[in-house]
Write a protein that binds this DNA or RNA. Structure first.
Lengths: 111, 111
DNA sequence: ATCCTTGTACGACGATCGTCGTAGTTTGAC
DNA sequence: GTCAAACTACGACGATCGTCGTACAAGGAT
């Protein structure tokens, strides 16, 4: 086979559904990923320290990508992820920031 | 047994978790309920025309209540539901409005 | 008392979810 | 060419989810 660069399927902006985005954001591990990306911009999967196995990590990144929350591209052996901020802000203004802020607020909450 | 008024368990404000709220909002039927309540204020379960059976409807209302999104009280044979706007706005400022607006925007989107 | 309306409890069902381990692939570095 | 690092694919597992139907309970109206 010709050595095609590995590609990853991303939903078109018009295919992004609110239900899927909310579901993608309803998991603690994925919220952690989103918050991390919101702070740091693009970063590799392994740069985030998650308390799950590598296969589970891959799974969560895929859920986020397929819901349209993040974009992923290969760079060498690494896979870089970043938030699809433009698309999300255009579709659901304020949602991303509101959720990230809410997550921060909850983390700071006296339990 | 003494005829106790039927009561319903609601999480305390401090027990409301973002993950649970987002999960509760990640279902189309429940989003429809929330949008309806956002528009109309308090209303009975049966006032909303959902495309599911009565038992499924009960289930969705319970999910919303247990996540802390709505409050439910009995009034005669009816059960009135309303958004816990104060609690949600205090915990996660802007979240509720953002999600409802996003849902409206999506509904208005050319598919 | 008898109905009707409204909602519940329970159990069932297939589907999806979050998790993992193992075995593999791709790429860059040596 | 070899090796290690980064990530994937696949299948498995128990748990949860969304849905339903049936049978039941509570309250108001007559």
């Amino acid at each position: 086979m010709t050595p095609q660069p590995r590609t990853l399927d991303h939903p078109d902006r018009s295919e992004i559904r609110l239900e899927d985005v909310l579901h993608a954001l309803s998991d603690p591990v994925r919220l952690q990923v989103v918050r991390f990306l919101a702070r740091t911009g693009e970063s590799s999967c392994s740069a985030i320290d998650l308390a799950v196995s590598k296969s589970t990590s891959t799974h969560h990144f895929r859920v986020l990508r397929e819901a349209g929350v993040i974009r992923q591209v290969y760079r060498g052996t690494a896979k870089m992820s970043s938030l699809r901020r433009e698309d999300l802000d255009a579709l659901f203004p304020g949602l991303l920031d509101t959720v990230v802020n809410a997550y921060d607020a909850q983390a700071a909450r006296p339990s």
